[in-house]
Each structure stands twice: as structure tokens, then as C-alpha cells.
Design a protein around this nucleic acid. Structure first.
Lengths: 162, 162
DNA sequence: TATTGTTATACTCTATAACTATA
DNA sequence: TATAGTTATAGAGTATAACAATA
């Protein structure tokens, strides 16, 4: 795998672009690879889609949420949440009840089976996260945290402006 | 957006998992956001798919490649390359010729229109990369380069082992 | 009128496998 | 037999919009 150089040393040459040194490409490849290690759990072993896993994770920590809140929490759009919720309900991991305060809302929560599944997956997911981050020194982990926050803000701003 | 903590301070609590502090999720969100800023160029402005853009980028720098080599270079499978190549050919950005040395190979190269498109996109893509990375200090950029390489190796190893 | 949630539609991406042709 | 490339198919992700029920 080619060692990367970020933008600094080659800003002059705008005429060509080597994907192996192009930050958005490298980031996409890395995120894809990391995602797959987690997907091996929720997808291969527990037969959930990525969206279902995110909804499960949302309800695992928040217990009772409206679909709208899950969408905000998990960065899925409301349509994806609706589909994932339907999927989890069919599999018996989740149920809905009406919100008496606002009958447009469907309050969602995990069934005992859903919570059991969640508690099976979480330690495995955590172990994978831990293992991946063990490639870094403590200082690098700390730096990465700051870096990711900065980059997300910057990229978001850029995209908003088009 | 919640400030993140990476794994260090909370290894004890394996019972719950907050997506906002889960590294694979945060990385996926970041990569997605960065990808979109580049997609605004190749997709919104120049009507290419992500795969077509990768093939264009491959041929922009390597001039003449077999489909197989493009797949290796761009991390697409041969089927995705085949489709992207067909799309670019229809749009007049690419043509193929037979390799006299091995007639199974189709040698691919950009047409003048394809090269012109490439040279329009590249400086814009570079500018976006540069702008995003300007959120970081020089030291952070350097650290990130090392970090990404380490993480990719580690994640790849983990995934291979399942 | 605005919001929550569902359904419809279409396009893209991902994955596996069957197939053709060449080697 | 093995490799390069194409085609088929299905499941999953992404996006926009129309729609129903409720506020």
C-alpha cells in the first residue's frame, strides 16, 4: 500500500491527482474497511442491516424514542428509520406504542429479545473498536479525536456552501 | 455535535454504546461528509457516478490501463469497473482498444474530451481537499497521515481474520 | 399550515455467480 | 484450467417526493 503524503508537499502540481495520495479517497477506503469489521458482527453474525444496527444502538442507549429522534441521533433520514424500524419489528426486536401526548409519534423501544441482542453485540463491537485503536499511541488517539472533530466541522461547512 | 472521546476513558462500561462516541460510526460520518464535498463536483456538476470518477482519475494519471489494473488501483471490483467504463465510453470520455499482446485485455484511455474533463475536475477536487485539511495544523496533518496508515493496516488485519 | 411517519420510485452501490473469449 | 472482461440478479443504501394522520 502506497504511503500517503497529505496535501502539503505537492500543492504546486494541480494537473494530476493520484488517488493513493488524495485525502478524500484514503478516508473513504479507511472508513469502508473499519465499517466492514463492525458489519461482520451485526450483518454476518446477527443478520441486521447497517440501518437496523444504528436504530438498535439508538434504542439501546435511549430506551424510548420517537422515530424523529432516532433519525437525528443516528444520521439516518426518516425514511431509512421507518424501514429499519419495520425490519426490526418483524424480527421481534422492537415494538411501538402511540404517544398519548402527540398521536403522530410512535414511541419505539426494544423488546427483551432486542435488548438481549443489543447486549450481545455491544461488547463485541467495543472489542473491535478497541483493537483497531490499539494500533495508535495514546497521544495519537487523543490527536485523532481533535482532528476528526475539526475535519467534520470544516467538511460540513464546505458542503453547505456547495 | 457532541464532542467525542475515544475509547480510553470508558473501557469499563461495555454494557452500553453511544454512537456519538463510537469510533467506527464517527469515522463513517466524517468520510461520508468529506465524500459529499467531492461528489458535489463529479456528480452534481459533471454528472459522473463515484465509480466513473474513480476510473477517470485512474486513467488521468496512468494514461493506458487494462480494466484489471484500474480495479486494483481504485479498489473497485472488476464488475464495477466494467460498468463505469461502459458509462464513460457512452459519454465519450474514454475509448478501448485491444491489446495485441493479450487479446483478453482491453486497453483503456481517455479521449480528448475525457482528458479535458479530468483537467477541469482535478484542480477543483484539490482545492476542496486543501480547504478541508486547512482546518488542521501542519503537525496534525502529519500525524493524520501516519494515523490513517496505521488504522488501515490494523482494520484490514482484523477484517481478514473475521 | 406544519410536522410525524409511511409509501412509491428511481438510481447507485455491493456482492455473487454465470458466461464468453482468450491464454 | 486460469484469467480478463461482460452480463444477470438481488439486496442494500441514498434521495426526492407524494401522501395520511395529526397538531
Amino acid at each position: 500500500m502506497a504511503q500517503a503524503q497529505l496535501v502539503a508537499e505537492r500543492e504546486a502540481s494541480d494537473g494530476a491527482l493520484d488517488l493513493q495520495h488524495f485525502f478524500p479517497y484514503r478516508l473513504a477506503v479507511l472508513a469502508e474497511e473499519v465499517s466492514r469489521t463492525v458489519a461482520q458482527l451485526y450483518s454476518d453474525r446477527f443478520d441486521l442491516t447497517r440501518h437496523e444496527w444504528r436504530v438498535l444502538a439508538a434504542l439501546g442507549i435511549n430506551r424510548r424514542m420517537a422515530a424523529k429522534d432516532i433519525a437525528d441521533y443516528s444520521r439516518l433520514d426518516k425514511m431509512s428509520v421507518s424501514r429499519a424500524v419495520a425490519g426490526l419489528e418483524v424480527k421481534g426486536y422492537l415494538d411501538r406504542e402511540e404517544d398519548p401526548a402527540d398521536r403522530r409519534n410512535k414511541i419505539l423501544r426494544l423488546t427483551p429479545a432486542g435488548r438481549a441482542l443489543y447486549q450481545k453485540i455491544v461488547p463485541l463491537a467495543r472489542a473491535r473498536e478497541r483493537h483497531i485503536l490499539e494500533a495508535l499511541t495514546a497521544a495519537e488517539r487523543k490527536a485523532l479525536d481533535v482532528i476528526m472533530t475539526k475535519l467534520l466541522t470544516q467538511a460540513h461547512g464546505l458542503r453547505e456552501r456547495g
